[in-house]
């Protein structure tokens, strides 16, 4: 099969740094990370269906330092994709396209996702032990 001829974008180093390009690329990156993270959801449900031994094994794996680090990353990815996804849905409705609004909502997605991640992990860590 022949390669698909497609227009190409200018190289990334031409652009001055702007928060909008960060929010855009983060949306895609967190989307890919979350698609990989679906494996954890499937694994957890299979273990929960399978029996206590496997489930406890799964839980101690998630509660291990590396497991916690991955869960921290995935929880932030989820909250970022959620916040920025709501932003995109609002934009799809035709709102928020003026440049100051666009910049402000980009920052709102980034900061909102960090705040949500901190809240959830504050709950997890103060409620004792690991997920």
């Amino acid at each position: 099969m022949a390669p698909t001829p497609r227009p190409t974008s200018p190289n990334i180093q031409i652009y001055r740094w702007q928060v909008q390009m960060v929010s855009s690329i983060l949306h895609r990156a967190t989307g890919i990370a979350l698609a990989v993270g679906t494996l954890i959801v499937v694994c957890g449900l299979l273990k929960l269906a399978g029996g206590a031994d496997g489930f406890n094994q799964f839980r101690s794996l998630v509660a291990s330092p590396i497991g916690m680090l991955l869960m921290l990353g995935w929880s932030w990815a989820l909250f970022y994709h959620l916040c920025n996804g709501i932003r995109h849905l609002i934009q799809d409705g035709g709102a928020g396209y003026r440049i100051p609004q666009f910049v402000r909502s980009s920052w709102l997605s980034v900061i909102g996702s960090l705040v949500l991640t901190v809240i959830v992990w504050a709950y997890v860590l103060t409620a004792g032990g690991a997920a």
Partner: peptide
């Protein structure tokens, strides 16, 4: 699916957090 996942995703996070520290049963 994005609109559905706004609600379902928040529900999922709350469910997982409610299972924090719960045993298998």
């Amino acid at each position: 699916t994005a609109a559905a996942l706004v609600g379902l995703g928040i529900w999922f996070v709350v469910l997982v957090l409610s299972l924090h520290g719960a045993d298998f049963e």
